[in-house]
């Protein structure tokens, strides 16, 4: 049971990283990024390939995953420069699917649908509970690190300009802000954070395969960020942990519900998640922790 709780918390932390990635690109920069699972996959594969096949140290793998995520983010951003809103969402969704389908089919590159197994773990597996606990500490440290970084960015002139760009591109451009530069930086940084999440995930499950990066993950993260508050780092983190807790809790509820098949139980969980979100948004339309104005500079 303790192992299960620790496992859930590690997954929650990975989701919290993804949620912070989405908060940056969607909540702050206003870029609807439905390709989150794709950047997550790019990070997971980058680190898994380097550490499993090339025997690189895990730290090098994680660093490469961050770079690969950021680079993929730049690529997607510059190929969608003229797109906004729904159109950007469609293209990013397509990107995530391309990553997944390429990973499934290019066996020489990614191992195909078999995936990459035997990915080195961060804490030796034979340490029992310490394996989970140690990994949890590392992932929580990553969440905190990204959280602190985001808080600092948000309070900086860069963060302010980013929110201005999100609000109105015309006004931001006549106020002397380069729209393209801010969008590319935010999108790329967000993708790098998703890449980090992917690497940590691979080094926990020690297995990376295409079916782990279904679009459903992106949707879950959107739910988490919407419920938690999409323009506040703490909101994104809170939403992610709550979502994972909710998903796991409903798993037990579905088991004890009488006269329901496993398939129906799974569907009931999805319904419960939807109702939960509607409930949260009815009470708190801007999420549990809505956007706060940054303190005006001392005057």
């Amino acid at each position: 049971m303790l192992t299960y709780i620790l496992f859930t918390l590690v997954v929650g932390s990975i989701y919290a990283l993804l949620a912070q990635s989405l908060m940056l690109s969607w909540g702050l920069a206003g870029l609807v990024n439905l390709g989150l699972a794709g950047f997550f996959a790019v990070g997971a594969y980058a680190s898994a390939m380097l550490t499993t096949w090339e025997q690189a140290p895990i730290l090098v793998g994680v660093f490469a995953a961050v770079l690969a995520g950021g680079f993929a983010g730049l690529l997607v951003c510059f190929s969608t420069l003229r797109l906004r809103d729904d159109y950007l969402a469609i293209v990013t969704l397509g990107f995530a699917e391309i990553v997944r389908i390429v990973a499934s089919n290019e066996v020489w590159l990614t191992g195909g649908t078999d995936g990459i197994s035997g990915v080195p773990v961060m804490i030796a597996r034979d340490t029992g509970i310490w394996f989970h606990l140690g990994t949890l500490l590392i992932t929580v440290a990553a969440v905190i690190l990204v959280y602190v970084l985001q808080r600092r960015l948000l309070a900086s002139p860069w963060g302010r300009a980013l929110r201005a760009v999100r609000e109105d591109q015309t006004v931001a451009s006549v106020a002397g802000k380069s729209i393209v530069r801010f969008k590319a930086q935010a999108f790329s940084l967000a993708a790098a954070i998703a890449g980090l999440a992917g690497a940590l995930y691979g080094h926990y499950t020690s297995y990376v395969a295409p079916d782990q990066f279904q679009p459903l993950i992106t949707i879950y993260i959107f739910l988490a960020v919407t419920a938690g508050g999409n323009a506040r780092p703490a909101g994104a983190v809170l939403g992610a942990y709550l979502l994972v807790a909710f998903l796991e809790a409903t798993r037990f509820l579905a088991e004890i519900a009488p006269g329901v098949t496993a398939l129906q139980a799974a569907a009931l969980r999805e319904i419960a998640v939807g109702i939960g979100l509607v409930f949260v948004l009815t009470l708190r339309p801007d999420g549990l922790l809505p956007e706060r104005s940054q303190k005006a500079p001392a005057s």
Partner: peptide, 25 residues
């Protein structure tokens, strides 16, 4: 050259101070 566009011309979710600061070149 300063330009004030028609109607939608401030950043609604930013405070007045933030609006001013973000507009500084």
């Amino acid at each position: 050259l300063g330009f004030v566009p028609q109607e939608r011309n401030v950043f609604g979710s930013l405070t007045v101070a933030e609006n001013l600061e973000v507009s500084c070149l």
